[in-house]
């Protein structure tokens, strides 16, 4: 089976549930943002030392969850196929909150804004965080267009993306600390 279909050369693409939509539709836009976010997390994983295998596993788990969110976004809410998809639930959001709390407990208290950057891994985490925020805005756009059943299906994915940006912020600080790089506070 070929990876390319050549059926999108005139600006349309097929949703997972079969509908033909313009490639700049809010739904495909949101899919693209989640895809970009996932890609950046992959880049982040590639610069985290192998010794931090627990963290790598966490990030790869998050990447799998982002695939689920991509599939949910790429499926029309009224499609019966939606029933077949794996969901993102409140438990996933709580899991992410627990990971945030665990990482944050190892860091010094924050007293102000920080400049994004530091070690390469921290920089990737910050870049992923910024894209995560953009993905969140795009999912909100999808929700604004979606009828009620669609809104409820995206409730927890939206919350997950929101918490993920917080996780990535804390992770960036963790990466700097573990590589001996101090936080750089913002100065007016």
């Amino acid at each position: 089976m070929k990876i390319y279909t050549g059926t999108g050369d005139e600006g349309k693409s097929s949703l997972f549930s079969g509908e033909r939509v313009m490639k700049n539709s809010p739904r495909l836009d949101a899919c693209g943002e989640v895809d970009e976010l996932n890609t950046l997390i992959g880049a982040l994983v590639s610069v985290i030392p192998d010794a931090e295998d627990g963290l790598i596993a966490q990030l790869q788990g998050i990447q799998s969850h982002l695939f689920r969110i991509g599939a949910l976004l790429a499926t029309s809410p009224d499609s019966p196929f939606m029933e077949e998809l794996e969901r993102i639930t409140e438990e996933h959001v709580q899991g992410l909150e627990e990971q945030i709390d665990a990482l944050e407990a190892t860091l010094s208290p924050l007293s102000g804004f920080l400049l994004p950057g530091g070690h390469m891994s921290a920089s990737w985490a910050h870049m992923a965080r910024a894209v995560c925020r953009r993905a969140e805005r795009r999912v909100v756009s999808v929700l604004a267009d979606a009828p009620a059943p669609g809104s409820s299906l995206l409730k927890w994915p939206l919350a997950y993306i929101n918490r993920l940006s917080d996780f990535l912020f804390v992770l960036a600080r963790h990466c700097n600390r573990s590589h001996g790089k101090p936080d750089v506070p913002w100065k007016r």
Binding site: Y4, T5, T7, G8, S13, S14, L15, F16, L28, C31, G32, V34, D35, N38, L66, F67, R68, G70, A71, A74, E84, L85, E86
Partner: peptide
Amino acid sequence: MEEVSHMSTPPT
């Protein structure tokens, strides 16, 4: 399905 298929959950 073009780019969409690259990010969908594969039941593989």
